[in-house]
């Protein structure tokens, strides 16, 4: 690979990570002002954060909302992928277009329309509404991940299992599921990550529920504060750990599958 190509990649990575690095640096900076030059190293902002009950509550709320979103995105993504790859499915094209709708309609338009219909039919806005709406937005991503793996599988394996007397359910559990488990864990992480990253949907549908992103948004309209930096870094690190774990799991599964084959 040429020198030009390498420098392009380095510049691109620098651009993508620059804001995050600056954010992290100031969370350890010994000054309440976010200005250069840096004044020294401190853990003060993290200590302040640990004593902040609002933050801890917001964090637990966000986490508890993200889990069902991940699970729902995975389950519905799995069902959608099974349907998309089913033999003799006449409405496949239409169904695929339908799956793109939550992705193509801007989140802001979708959430405001959902907020209107909910208040009209008396469905209270809150955690449940937020979970359902976020799962819907994650669905196209989850489906893409699972379906991409399923179309590459050898259909003869399922056929062989069925010929040897396995019920469809057994064939699914014993033959298909082990092969798509890495993709399922990917779909789950995408749901969790999109839920943790979301602010737009929460603004319209959270009701009295206060996830972290909403708390940060209301705090930050007023001022920049280093303990908010520290909070962002904590969220970033936890998300990275989550991604790392699911990636490690995926790789281990893939290796195991390769060893079995």
């Amino acid at each position: 690979m040429g020198r030009i190509g390498l420098s392009v990649l380095i510049v691109a990575a620098g651009f993508l990570y620059l804001p995050l690095v600056v954010l992290a640096v100031f969370s350890f900076n010994d000054s309440a002002l976010m200005a250069f030059p840096l004044s020294g190293f401190t853990l003060e902002w993290y200590r302040e954060l640990a004593g902040n009950e609002n933050f801890l509550r917001g964090f637990v709320t966000s986490f508890l909302i993200a889990q069902p979103v991940g699970i729902l995105a995975m389950l519905f993504g799995l069902m959608a992928s099974l349907a998309l790859t089913a033999p003799g499915f006449r409405w496949r094209g239409l169904f695929a277009v339908l799956l793109l709708v939550p992705f193509l309609v801007p989140k802001s338009v979708l959430s405001i329309a959902q907020a209107m219909i909910m208040s009209r039919i008396g469905f209270e806005r809150g955690a449940t509404a937020l979970i359902l709406a976020q799962s819907l937005v994650a669905l196209p991503f989850a489906t893409a991940l699972i379906a991409a793996v399923m179309v590459r599988l050898d259909p003869r394996l399922i056929e062989a299992a069925r010929d040897l007397g396995a019920s469809p359910w057994q064939a699914f559990l014993r033959v298909l599921l082990p092969q798509i488990r890495p993709a399922l864990s990917g779909a789950y992480s995408v749901g969790v990550i999109l839920s943790l990253a979301d602010l737009t949907i929460a603004m319209f549908l959270a009701g009295r529920t206060q996830p972290l992103s909403l708390m940060v948004a209301s705090e930050f309209r007023r001022e920049l504060r280093p303990d908010l930096n520290a909070m962002q870094v904590v969220v970033l690190v936890l998300t990275a750990v989550l991604v790392g774990l699911s990636e490690a799991y995926r790789r281990r599964r893939l290796k195991k599958l390769a060893a079995e084959a």
Partner: peptide
């Protein structure tokens, strides 16, 4: 792929907040 996708994992509000620090009058 990981390097490319990780910045997407950060929340909408995190990115907005970070750019304010980078681009501000006394920013980087």
């Amino acid at each position: 792929v990981i390097v490319l996708l990780t910045p997407l994992y950060t929340g909408e509000i995190v990115r907005i907040y970070a750019w304010r620090i980078v681009l501000g009058g006394e920013g980087l």
